[in-house]
Design a binder for these strands. Structure first.
Lengths: 132, 132, 132, 132
DNA sequence: GTGGTCTAGACCACG
DNA sequence: GTGGTCTAGACCACA
């Protein structure tokens, strides 16, 4: 779980998953949380590759997925930019939240936990995090 | 999402994930929910492979993981059996529930959702499920 | 415009466009026209690469796009298969036909042609093709 | 899809295609539709670049293609002018219409649509446009 | 300078 | 054997 920086962004990469997916995921999060703003230019493929000590192709793969998500726009010869539409970002964030929540519930129920169990476990997790 | 049977067990297999993981996960669930009881013998690798129309290597891979979980015991020449200790099963179930919950919260927070958002989304999901 | 064969399939590749897009496009057409049937296995990445005298990565890129289109399903360790759902294929074909038609009309109108001109040009093209 | 003006001309630029092609295409259309008349002077590369907020190289690339089309003539030290021959413009327009039509038909047939399908889709598109 | 494509060749996960 | 990922390094199109 190595930490690497690219401008204001901080990345945590390990080898248990595809690198391009980790980059993709963490870019999505940075966009969703507003750490990078609509319209912002993100680091060039080569810059990012150098900062993360990763092959440019790997970064490029991640950037192309971001484009498919509609979170970025690529201008050949100019660079890659966050979409100027905050609505699109928010829509992405909401869709994703619902999907993650559904999947969480599905798993818990598959192991025989009911709504009360789920709520109890969440409360427990929240209490733990308060102490920390 | 094809349905296949092996004795009392019903499996749902699709192709979007590794087969061995799907089998593993659904075996864990069957054990956790008590659909298979402590001490029960589970089908041999070959039987299971035939029933699921799947490569024996795939079943074998899943069974090895169950052993590592401590949910099964393999007795040379006799076959594979669910652990005789219900406590061990319950401990596994609790540990897993906490791990899944932690991971869920980690993801939601990574996308900028707070505790209130999480609770709201869960309530929404519960309401949806009631209507259905 | 070189012709290359892979099993029953015939490909025409040139260098004026990305190779992976040409492969993608011609696979889509083969599927849409029913030259490959639902459920069929398509040649492995390596077979196809060899047949087309192209790098396996290039074929892989095309196959991944087909997956995204929902026209194929990939089973790791087994190969790539045409979706078993003919409806999905037909839906793809219809959507694409409408998109292509819209674009055609848009272009013609942008150059000052009206509906009558468009119909006349089509009739002319059809007559030409009859003579050939 | 941003709108930008250069004298009497209005351009719609987006980022999904090369800028020089969009400029080229829209210049061709303006000439074909007579929005710019034979013999007219068109803005200099620099003026145009400034008006469209675009790199001069980009405009230059588009102008060179127009010259190759025979739609413009560049006179050293004086600027770029629309050809004085209306016949040449009309010939260009006809050629282009045939090329676009051929390409449209080729695509439709590649996806297994016949003449009847094509006509039906066009009629459908026309009906849709009437309602709007 | 930017991103996109392609190759060659390696290694991994899965069945 | 299958597909997926990664690297290194080349070349192209675009601004």
């Amino acid at each position: 779980m190595e930490e690497r920086r690219a401008g204001a962004l901080v990345f945590h990469l390990d080898l248990s998953q595809p690198l391009y997916e980790q980059i993709l995921q963490q870019m999505r999060q940075a966009i969703a949380k507003g750490e990078i703003r609509p319209g912002d230019k993100i680091p060039s493929v080569r810059e990012m590759a150098q900062a993360l000590r990763v092959n440019p192709n790997t970064v490029s793969h991640a950037y192309q997925e971001l484009d498919r998500d509609g979170l970025t726009e690529t201008r050949r010869g100019q660079g890659t930019f966050i979409t100027t539409s905050p609505e699109r970002i928010e829509r992405f964030r909401q869709t994703l939240a619902r999907r993650v929540t559904q999947e969480f519930i599905r798993q818990m129920q598959a192991f025989g936990f009911g709504w009360d169990d789920i709520r109890a476990l969440l409360r427990e997790a929240q209490d733990d995090s308060r102490e920390t």
